[in-house]
Design a binder for these strands. Structure first.
Length: 420
RNA sequence: GUGGAUGUAGCUCAGUUGGUGGCAGCACCUGGUUGUGGCCCAGGAGGUCGUGGGUUCAAGUCCCAUCAUUCACCCCA
């Protein structure tokens, strides 16, 4: 009986994990440039939190959550709900009027796995709480675009406005009337959606529906004055910051809580999973979860698996060695000496590899070459007897003799030579 | 949840009308060089042919089931 990882759950092995680290390191750097602070959140929350935040009727809540039914707790399917719960629970709005927070970690949804979609997947989630300024919206998108650009990925940005509780009901009514008229021309899914989630019909992929929907009433034309102002403020900000985007009046979000600005970073290189990042504004959500009144929010999440896939497509393996020195021993005496010296070098902060299997020098040189190590310290019996060793520069093939003094000064000498 | 495709060495894959698992490539180990990497050459190791049934004298090959992987739908990051 072979034990394997669960369907939709993946190990991230050495070789790939370096890409993840690079992604995370760069993201943390960029988040810091924009003054975001990290918050770390639990993976398990009360089921009710997600039901209230994401929406009872969404697919996520209805059928995709990993829930311990008897305990009424759920593995988080997304980060915003947990983050807002923490924000409210600790009264973070009192400490600072505007909070800028990010969190990185695994999420869980019981969907059928496919390319770029796992059951345990990882997101980097960024939220700004307490500001209605359209400049914040623009800044969020600019930050996402900056990260993607510095990763070397070309990804496009699409934006829309979903309006607010003032203007959306009116739009919904006219959309429903329109869909009713065109009912026969829609695909089966959209016939169903017309009643369950009419906005979703707008971004159906079926060409027939797309054609029908072209003439559908537009969200953008139904925006109230405040929402329209906000939208133009966002656009102005994006233009000022030089962020490329396109307005897509058919883009809709799957989670109930979004208002006004919504956006997606989209790629054509991941098959059906086009969105590598998406988010939007959710001005009523904090209050709805029992938080302070009238505190607005905006946020977005980046799908890390999807970004890593793109990075993998873009470039071959990372060849950076991650090792400073290879210590090669020849025979028992020198291996014994090298064993101790290796440890001393590591204590001194160096990344050192030594073969402990007693292999031939040729084999050890091969290993060193494969590792891409810049230097090899060769401890030969003859030299060792004279208190010497050979340091080989692998790139130039130059070798120099070293006088071995006490361990501490040998370490010092090597560190100086190698870091030079 | 629905539909399609695919499971043979660590990886990528051959395997004919059923008739002994491949001098296959990459990776790994050893040697060619009494103590020096990348190239080359030689050798070596590595397999429950996803699993369980069935048909057959005989199954990697045909049939059924099952598990897994994968792509798409749905949904979403």
């Amino acid at each position: 009986m072979n034990i394997k990882a669960l369907n939709g759950f993946k190990d991230i092995l050495p070789g790939e994990v370096e890409l993840w680290q690079r992604l995370e390191t760069l993201a943390r750097d960029i988040f810091a440039r924009f003054n975001f602070s990290e918050i770390r959140l639990p993976i398990l929350e009360k089921t009710d939190l997600f039901a209230r935040a994401i929406g009872e009727a969404t697919d996520i809540v209805e059928k995709e959550m990993y829930t311990f039914v008897d305990k009424q707790v759920t593995m988080r399917p997304e980060a915003t709900a947990s983050l807002l719960r923490a924000y409210i629970e600790h009264g973070l709005h009192v400490q600072k009027p505007v909070q800028r927070l990010f969190t990185i970690g695994p999420m869980f949804r019981h969907e059928r796995p496919q390319k770029g979609r796992l059951r345990q997947f990882h997101q980097m989630d960024v939220e700004v709480l307490g500001s209605t300024s359209p400049r914040v919206d623009a800044e969020m998108m600019a930050m996402g675009a900056m990260l993607l650009a510095e990763l070397g990925l070309s990804v496009s940005l699409e934006m829309n406005s979903l309006g607010c509780p003032v203007c959306r009901p009116g739009f919904r009514t006219s959309l429903l009337a329109f869909l009713d008229e065109r009912h026969q021309g829609l695909c089966d899914d959209c016939k169903r959606r017309s009643s369950t989630n009419p906005l979703r019909v707008l971004d159906c992929k079926n060409p027939k529906c797309r054609e029908q929907v072209l003439e559908a009433p537009s969200l953008l034309e139904h925006l109230c004055a405040d929402c329209a102002d906000h939208l133009s403020g966002v656009q102005e900000g994006l233009e000022q910051l030089g962020v490329q985007y396109s307005l897509n009046k058919f883009m809709v979000r799957g989670l109930d809580y979004y208002t006004r600005t919504t956006f997606e970073f989209i790629t054509g290189d991941l098959g059906a999973q086009a969105a590598v990042g998406a988010g939007g504004r959710y001005d009523g959500l904090i209050e709805q979860l029992g938080g302070p009144r009238g505190v607005p929010g905006i946020g977005f999440a980046l799908g890390m698996e999807r970004l890593v896939l793109l990075l993998q497509q873009k470039e071959a393996e990372l060849t950076a060695s991650g090792v400073d020195l290879f210590v090669a021993g020849l025979g028992e005496q020198s291996s014994r000496y090298g064993f101790g010296l290796t440890h001393a070098l590591r204590t001194g902060g160096m990344r050192v590899v030594m073969d402990l299997e007693g292999r031939s020098l040729k084999s050890q040189m091969k290993q060193a070459g494969k590792l891409g190590v810049p230097y090899v310290l060769i401890l030969g019996e003859n030299e060792l007897a004279e208190g010497k060793a050979v340091l080989r520069n692998m790139a130039t093939q130059e070798q120099q003799e070293l006088l071995l003094q006490d361990e501490a000064s040998t370490v010092q000498t090597l560190v100086a030579l190698i870091s030079a």
